[in-house]
Design a protein around this nucleic acid. Structure first.
Lengths: 326, 326
DNA sequence: CCTTCGACGGCAAGCGGTTGCGGAACTCTC
DNA sequence: GAGAGTTCCGCAACCGCTTGCCGTCGAAGG
């Protein structure tokens, strides 16, 4: 059917092993022969069959990328970057969506295992224990989570949160509220911790609410708590929540940023296009995707190293924050 | 290393071929032996190596899904649905992003070719000719494009556009404008055609502008033309453009939907969360993803059939359209 | 009791590459 | 000009699984 290494060998008048070597270990073959082989390969439009070589080498040149929900606007930039970066390194990537289901996640990993050299797990829903167990068999990199023995890339929301608090304090806000995300969210915890610390340092008041659904609806619901608290500035778990908060406040006749300032997190398209344009803590999702692939390839090549990368976040000021009302 | 068919065979006291058959052709093996094999497989946690079987059967149980830009909010729901649907059928999917580069697209297809049973091309940037040529070697399904000899799934924007025109006419609008997308866009053409026809039928005026960049910026730029034309209703190429138009109009002191009504296309999250919430022509992207995979699997199984599926679009009315001003 | 026939399962040759081993041909050295 | 080293390449086994072919065995038929 397709042209194989044997066809090339015949055409070039050499043994298949020579053809194989000209591709995988060119220095082992004489320059002249190499030319001949390459010419023949070119002529026949030969392309090595990765699956076949995987069989003997154990390297598939494929990666898995598992996310909770492809349609959540937080993920696509990460997927895009990871995939592009992998491709530059001659790796293809399976993208899979678990629909937030740990069961599906585990199954997916197991069926994927034989076909990939490693897996990137973004914000996994599995327990640490389960991940550790799976990690015995296959290199993993987790994003925004810490699992013993595995490489991780963490987006340090702490720094961005501090910047946000400083920004708001600088605008004269004295009572702030932080709207947390889902119960088990690592970044939600990080945010709370740094937000509270920064507020204390600056001598402003900070209350934390939550858990909340990480959606617009969650934001709408949380807006009541904002009003009750008397806060004039809000840092929301993500852009969607921030938009929900703004919507909820507007519905109650409260202007943003006139009466209350709102800060989001993630810097999604949706936030950028919102009216008012969202002031937001930018998550370096493309960098996270690239870094994850990078660490994964290192782990694949270098054996059991559990590296860690921490990426900084920072505040981008747009129109949803303004001076505190008098 | 990993547990293979041989380990299972040894454990069950049978030949490897028997093990193979209990998985790929269970009816050829006696129920009792089958039980024994399955028990052994279970005990050893055996999982067949797809890559290895692909080598002999020619079926990889993998699919490719190639899109122009993963980060464009139009694609993720399609990717998500395609991937989920494929997985139910025991297929994994490689997702790749061409970054709108035809060159990259072709290369991608070629390197992927050996590892997949077929490819879904969403809004490809390659020429029809190139696609046809590639289609000789590998089953393809194209989405929102028609290529001779290949299966296609088309989202018929025509119906939704008619609905939009009727909706606007019903609100009393008499001068409308249709803001087209990129030059070579199939759906942009469809829109124009049906929009103009519907307008003629209803006896209202319809002007078409374009080409425009399919982005917010493109919308902002087009907003000038809207004002000049004196149109009181606009149908934009997609939600992003619609948002841009609204922004451009607002910046010029024109209220939406007070003075001008705006309709988008796609029904993205971003449009749903916009203020005002976008009236939009809903593109059935999840269904398109599923259907594409469906047709692809048919083509993979059944040989060279070039089926076509047309999916309907329809209007969802929200807050960006209203009665024509007096 | 012998033939015929299914059903079952073992045998072995691949699928398309990779790779350790060893031999042939050269180059060097003394 | 023989021995030692190198370089290059062919040989063949193997990776994990599939599948056409054939032998065995028990049951059915005569």
């Amino acid at each position: 059917m397709a042209v194989t290494i044997r066809d090339v060998a015949k055409a070039a008048g050499v043994h298949v092993s020579t053809v194989s070597r000209t591709f995988s270990a060119p220095n082992l073959v004489n320059a002249a022969t190499r030319e001949r082989v390459l010419a023949a390969a070119q002529r026949l439009d030969y392309r090595p069959n990765r699956a076949a070589s995987a069989l003997t080498t154990g390297r598939t040149h494929n990666l898995g990328l598992i996310v909770a929900d492809i349609a959540n606007p937080f993920f696509p930039p990460l997927i895009k970057a990871a995939q592009a970066y992998a491709r530059e390194r001659e790796y293809h990537v399976f993208v899979a969506d678990t629909d937030e289901d740990p069961q599906a996640e585990e199954e997916l990993i197991q069926t994927l295992a034989k076909q990939v050299d490693g897996v990137v797990l973004v914000a996994p829903r599995l327990t640490n224990l389960a991940i550790e167990r799976l990690g015995m068999d296959l290199p993993f990199v987790v994003v925004n989570r810490r699992v013993k023995g595995l490489s991780a890339v963490l987006m340090d929301i702490g720094h961005g949160t501090e910047e946000a608090v400083e920004h708001l304090a600088g605008l004269g806000h004295r009572r702030m509220m932080l709207i947390g995300g889902p119960r088990a969210s690592w970044s939600s915890e990080q945010m709370s911790r740094s937000g509270v610390a920064a507020a204390a340092r600056l001598g402003v008041e900070m209350t934390v609410t939550g858990p909340n659904s990480p959606t617009e609806q969650g934001g709408v619901e949380a807006s009541a708590a904002v009003l009750e608290s008397g806060a004039t500035a809000v840092i929301a778990y993500n852009d969607l929540v921030a938009i929900g908060v703004i919507e909820g406040l507007n519905d109650r006749g409260v202007d943003v940023p006139g009466a209350v300032s709102v800060v989001g997190v993630d810097d999604t398209v949706t936030g950028r296009l919102n009216r008012p344009k969202l002031t937001t803590i930018v998550m370096p999702t493309p960098a996270a995707g690239r870094t994850a692939v990078d660490l994964l390839l290192q782990a694949v090549a270098g054996g059991r190293t559990a590296a860690q990368a921490t990426l900084e976040t920072s505040l981008t000021v747009r129109d949803s924050t303004g001076p505190a009302p008098d």
